[in-house]
Simulated scan of single mutants.
Amino acid sequence: MAHIIVVGNEKGGAGKSTVSMHVATGLARCGQRVGALDLDLRQQSLGRYLSNRQRYLAAEGLAHLPSPQFHELPTIDPDTLQPDENSQDRSLSTAVAALEGSCDFLVIDCPGSHTRLSQLAHSLADTLITPLNDSFVDFDLLARTDQDGQKVLGPSVYSEMVWSARQLRAQAGLPALDWLVIRNRLGAQAMVNKAKMQAALDALARRIGFRTAPGFHERVVFRELFPRGLTLLDLPDIGVTQFSLSNIAARQELRDLLRALNLPGVDVDF
């Protein structure tokens, strides 16, 4: 059975697809067999990222770069459904079944909104990664705070959805979900908001049960790599021999994230 990693929250623009792509390719470079699903049926950012990758490899005549095995969600014939069975539930379970027997890890990228597919994926997650921009606008999906951002008043909509997923896993006799909230697009400066965010996350982590880790700083390189379907780890394979300090730091951020996930059987050696 594959270890299922779900990357999700209910807000767009937090870097979910970037995290999904780099985690999936990073695990592939660690010698793991990795599958990938994209549940954003409209935007399909992860699916397009991987499609760009295949086109780039073909155009450049490159034989291979370590990559996840991508599987599109199948279309379900309504006539095959059982009474009260939902077509999206069947579609996701079919896609997961097609990958998990041949994969060590399955990375599922969720849309930036609350959907039935996203809710179901969260209940399947062994590891949940929630990227969060360093802003109380994003934090509000996790919890409500007072006007100064100093006191957590209570969990918000996304935390409640994760709690429901945890209950479903417990009822099914599955291991507890490991939830990691990562702070994305951090600025380099030490600002007051940065310290307030860290304090609020630390307080909420103890209250509702997640771990925190740094994500990726704001870097142009992530946007530049998308059209070619490349990640930071691919640059030496396409002939890049000199790296900027920003690229070196970004590679280290990815190593730190993969180590923070503490995934079974993974040795981060790149």
Rank of each mutant, 00 (worst) to 15 (best):
I182V: 08
N184M: 11
W179V: 02
V181R: 01
M161W: 10
G173P: 12
L174H: 11
Q147S: 14
V162K: 08
W179Q: 13
E160K: 15
V152W: 07
Q171W: 03
P155Q: 12
Y158M: 01
Q147R: 12
A165N: 06
L168E: 08
R169T: 00
E160M: 14
R169I: 04
R169C: 01
L153Q: 01
P155V: 11
W163N: 06
G149Q: 12
L168H: 07
A172V: 12
P175S: 07
L177R: 15
A165T: 13
Q171F: 04
L174W: 11
V157Y: 07
N184L: 06
Q171V: 01
W163C: 09
Y158T: 11
A165R: 11
G149L: 10
N184F: 10
L177F: 01
G149V: 09
W163S: 10
S159K: 08
G154A: 12
I182E: 02
G149C: 08
L153Y: 03
W163H: 14
Q150W: 08
L168I: 06
D178C: 15
W163G: 02
R166L: 04
L153P: 00
W163E: 15
D148S: 15
S159M: 11
G154K: 12
W179A: 00
V157I: 13
S164E: 14
V162H: 03
D148V: 05
V157W: 12
A172K: 14
V152G: 06
R183P: 07
L177Q: 15
Q147P: 02
Q147I: 13
G173C: 02
Q171Y: 01
R185W: 10
V157T: 15
R183L: 13
K151V: 15
K151M: 03
K151I: 08
L168N: 02
A172I: 14
W179K: 10
N184C: 00
L177G: 00
Q147H: 11
I182Q: 01
